[in-house]
Design a protein around this nucleic acid. Structure first.
Lengths: 194, 194
DNA sequence: TGATTCTGATGCAGTCACTGCAATTTGGCG
DNA sequence: CGCCAAATTGCAGTGACTGCATCAGAATCA
């Protein structure tokens, strides 16, 4: 990452945390982009150089799986489950210090429909990334199956993210593995009669 | 449904189809809410009585699973898969005549990021509905499993919707069943070594 | 060091999305 | 025909967002 990108990332984060702090205090509808920009120490115009609209600022810069860990996952030789554990564990390690902010964001997106939409969008974007990784790891698999598996994995890790960010569970990775282990029994429900 | 609700629904649809038609011709960014309202034969103000923002008009009124079919599914006695087939088959039957418009909408949402977000949001909203139905059908199941299963089901039916609306497959229900049958093998991938 | 150049920040002006309110019309119903 | 509730509309105002021209700072090079 070039030094200018680091600088950009930092400013983006500063705007995000200002936006979340203000939204938590006053409600998303009662704060203006100008107020956010001002609290973040940039001009109103600069705000829009970083985020195309107000709600996007709350979501912040969208993180991807780290490239090296992704490579390891693609070429992994263990079971899918075991290698997945490595991947998400490296992924989450970068956000351990943002737990509180993430919790606020989750609560905010429960109240505001536009934020809900953006969060859902972020979830499905991540699903796309996961599907890409899976497809490269299992090149001969039916893409429709890849898609379905990716959905299940993201649903599982999302459960974990939420319970971690909202303080229900302490260890993210453990919660994630627990959820992931539910995928197979969940799928089995389909074929059983009740 | 009361007669006034029917009227409302009809107007909502009229606005939606005007919006999609204009967006297909000129691009979503080059049309104003006023132009959409005018093309739909309502005032600019009325537009916002139906949709809170421009992009929402393209998505139209969000359909839910029909109540009677949902009841049947909840109390169904066949395998989950078989009863699911009934449910989605009744669900889709109401939209068979909108295939072309749906195709346009899907293509539009590939180009515009806000529309992508809304579409993804609609998908996850539907996942929530599906999870609700599943939970009532299988009351003693771990909610986390329900969530995961709902995700997989929605991913599968979504695949089907897309290939149907874009003209790849002719029979929606058949495509959906094919996708649903991939859920279990997809889940099995998790535990295998490669 | 001083000239240059490039990236990012800013101010300004304009357009249009969107809202609240108050008035009017419409369509159903006795 | 007359009444009521729902739907439609106009209007005026706020603020989100854009294009453009300019400006400050930092890196590069002679």
């Amino acid at each position: 990452m070039s030094s200018s990108s680091i600088r950009r990332y930092h400013t983006a984060k500063k705007i995000q945390s200002a936006a979340i702090a203000l939204a938590v205090k006053n409600g998303l509808n009662n704060i203006t982009t100008e107020a956010i920009a001002c609290a973040a120490g940039v001009s109103a115009r600069t705000f829009f150089n970083y985020y195309p609209y107000k709600e996007a600022a709350l979501m912040g810069p969208q993180p991807d799986y780290p490239e090296d860990a992704a490579e390891l996952f693609i070429n992994g030789t263990g079971s899918l489950l075991a290698d997945l554990r490595e991947l998400i564990s490296v992924h989450i390690s970068r956000f351990l210090h943002e737990r509180e902010m993430l919790g606020h964001l989750l609560k905010l997106s429960e109240t505001d429909p536009k934020l809900t939409a953006l969060r859902n969008n972020a979830v499905l974007a991540r699903r796309g990334k996961m599907a890409g990784l899976l497809q490269r790891r299992l090149p001969d698999t039916d893409p429709r199956m890849i898609d379905i598996l990716a959905s299940a994995i993201i649903a599982a890790t999302n459960n974990a993210t939420q319970s971690w960010a909202l303080g229900v569970s302490e260890d993210f990775v453990e919660a994630a593995m627990e959820n992931l282990s539910l995928i197979l029994p969940a799928a089995r429900l389909l074929e059983e009669d009740d």
